[in-house]
Design a protein around this nucleic acid. Structure first.
Length: 597
RNA sequence: GCGCCCGUAGCUCAGCCGGAUAGAGCAACGGAUUUCUAAUCCGUAGGUCGAAGGUUCGAGUCCUUCCGGGCGCGCCA
């Protein structure tokens, strides 16, 4: 039935959204009419149908083989919603439409304004969720391929945490692959110490690539690399030291990027962390009969699962080595048994769907109860609609990409607002540039491949970060202009997100732009929990875009500081709340706002 | 061969569990600036939702087949 009444989303605070209030009233009316709960109560699909609608009568009519409009009338007769909306009307084939009273909106807006959480309730049943995202590889620079995982994973983590879940952000770094044989061989034979001093990671990448080329054409080199890997895995001192240094250099590069992106991890348990646990995993699976020996390797078959029947999974190679799958199984075990995770979310690209199906299926057979989710996403494409690469056909380093974003943002700032101070320009360029890159990812459904375009993501028009940031800047500008006079009593104990306190105890909404804006502001609390429904940050992004749009319309139509009371105070309050919702909403997406731009 | 994902306006994309006459932005065209940032707003135009069947009160959404694109399928990660 209605999402707003499902166990996961019942508000635990006193404050409730219009949606949940109306859902309850509908539920009461249905009970009153001797009918079971049915259908859903949702925001209206079109303004012509009012603000909320329900299809309860349609669903019930089908179940009971009755006339939907008659049923709708029956339900409407028992609906007691006079405090919230105009009399509900039956429309179309049997929808019931609700139009909020302006007074109710004004009251609700004040409630939201008073609430530190902007009306967003914490989930009733919270869980410990390990979120696996980012996962760069050591000895390779982070590139565009990592950005979606990092940005989407971080946003989901922020949102889940805000909703009250206990979130563990885990960076599953690729620090133990077979590539290390080549890295170590290269380190020993090809390393240029001076180059290493200048740019460590670049030098490591260089020797890795060169070794790779040699290994491809020379079997002796390939064998030498394999030997280095064997030594490393056996704990050889020299190779372990080299490995440690490579990891440290790589981490420096990651940290630089994470600082720019404002991404933080609670845990960075890379693949090497699980190394010692791998034999145990294989033993356990063999013992339980889930795995078996086949052609010298240890393999899990899924014979009773039609989808996986012809897709076995190797967990120990014929040569005795372990692989990616073994590590992932050890990781599940650690997260469930040691970290006590109720859920694990893997924010990993779509190509690995099969792999995670296999892993999850094995976890299920082993009896792990945790809720395992593979949150997939599509690729970032270049203007040619092919996987985004540099001109020479290589992956685009993330550092370079982010630097260019800031550079381009800076250029626009120079054009639009040259009188800003140098410090401001640097700060704003970073917020706009990074924000634009992140928002481009988050504003789109994660499964769609999308075309990367500087021009589009940095545009001030349309669904972009700068457009949203500009709405916030306009709010701030009003308050800068207003100065202290706008900051009056009573104080509402609101956490300082914008630095300004509201100035009215009640709102008078007259202009349609004011009403629209207030309505949007009340919807924030209805939108945020929906994101986790199907892991879609773009739902929040789209909402914020519409909010910014409503605010810009309001801004054009309704002078704030120049208007007379009570409109002035009301409008100031709308501005405060818009600023706070934008700030908080963008923060949940991991995007910062500048004060000026 | 088998499996997964995608196909919506000229372009980039929304449209979650099936809801009413399919929506934005860009580009195009026409307006608005004695102003709290025009870095904006208002308006016009633009569609057989890849194709064909099916399920039902109702399908962009679910099922089947086909077409087109991407990805994946025993010792890489």
């Amino acid at each position: 039935m209605r999402r707003s009444q499902s166990a996961a989303t019942v508000p635990s605070l006193l404050m409730e959204t219009f949606q949940s209030l109306l859902a309850k009233k509908l539920s009461d009316a249905l009970a009153n009419a001797g009918l079971p709960d049915a259908g859903e109560l949702a925001q209206a699909t079109d303004p012509r149908f009012g603000d909320y609608q329900t299809n309860a009568a349609l669903v019930l009519a089908k179940q009971r083989d009755e006339n939907p409009r008659d049923l709708a009338e029956k339900i409407v007769a028992r609906l007691d919603v006079g405090d919230l909306c105009e009399p509900p009307v039956v429309a179309g084939v049997g929808f019931i439409n609700f139009t909020l009273r302006t007074g109710a909106m004004a009251e609700k807006t004040v409630e939201v304004l008073r609430d530190e959480r902007l009306g967003v309730a914490e989930e009733r049943s919270t869980r410990r969720i390990v979120i696996d995202f980012g996962s760069p590889n050591v000895a390779k620079p982070m590139h565009v391929g990592h950005i979606r995982s990092t940005v989407v994973g971080d946003a989901l983590a922020r949102i889940a945490a805000f909703l009250g879940h206990e979130v563990v952000r885990d960076n599953h770094i690729g620090d133990w692959g077979t590539q290390f044989g080549m890295v170590i061989y290269g380190w020993k034979n090809l390393l240029d110490q001076q180059a290493l001093q200048r740019n460590p990671l670049a030098e490591i990448v260089r020797v890795y690539k060169e070794t790779n080329e040699r290994a491809n054409s020379n079997p002796q080199v390939r064998e030498a690399c394999r030997q280095e890997l064997v030594k490393l895995q056996a704990g050889d001192k020299e190779n372990t030291d080299i490995w440690n240094e490579c990891v440290a250099f790589s981490m420096q590069d990651f940290e630089h990027v994470y600082k720019l992106l404002d991404v933080h991890y609670d845990l960075q348990c890379g693949e090497s962390f699980y190394h010692a646990r791998l034999p145990g995993v294989v033993e356990r699976l063999l013992k339980s009969g889930i795995a078996e020996i086949s052609e010298g390797a240890v393999v899990v078959f899924f014979r009773d699962n039609p989808e996986l029947a012809d897709k076995p999974l190797i967990i120990r190679k014929r040569d005795g080595g372990f692989n990616y799958a073994t590590t992932d199984l050890a990781t599940v075990d650690y997260r469930v048994n040691d970290l006590k995770a109720d859920a694990i979310w893997y924010v990993v690209g779509a190509p690995q769907i099969l792999h995670f199906k296999q892993i999850f299926e094995i976890a299920r057979r082993e009896g792990y109860a945790a809720d395992l989710r593979h949150i997939t996403f599509g690729s970032i494409l270049g203007e040619d609609r092919k996987l985004m690469k540099t001109r020479s056909g290589e992956n685009v380093p993330l550092r370079d990409l982010l630097d260019e974003a800031c550079k381009r943002a800076r250029k626009i700032i120079e054009e639009k607002n040259p009188h800003l101070s140098e410090d401001d320009k640097i700060d704003i360029a970073e917020k706009i540039g990074i924000g634009a890159v992140k928002y481009a990812d988050l504003s789109q459904y994660r499964m769609t491949d999308y075309v990367f375009s500087w021009e589009k993501m940095l545009s001030l028009h349309g669904n972009t970060a700068p457009y949203l940031q500009n709405a916030y800047v306009r709010v701030r500008s009003i308050f800068r202009k207003a100065g202290e006079s706008a900051v009056a009593t009573p104080l509402w104990g609101v956490k300082e997100e914008t630095g300004h306190r509201p100035v009215a105890t009640e709102l008078t909404l007259n202009d349609s732009a004011e009403i629209n804006l207030a309505k949007r502001l009340c919807q924030f609390a209805e939108i945020v929990p929906q994101v986790l429904n199907d892991f879609r940050p773009n739902i929040l992004a789209n909402y914020l875009f519409e909010l910014a749009n409503s605010f810009h319309t309001f801004y054009e139509a309704c002078p704030v500081l120049k208007s007379d009371e009570p409109a002035r105070s009301s409008r100031l309050a709308l501005c405060v709340l818009t600023g706070r919702v934008l700030y908080r909403g963008l923060d949940l997406l991991g995007i910062k706002v500048p004060e000026k731009m």
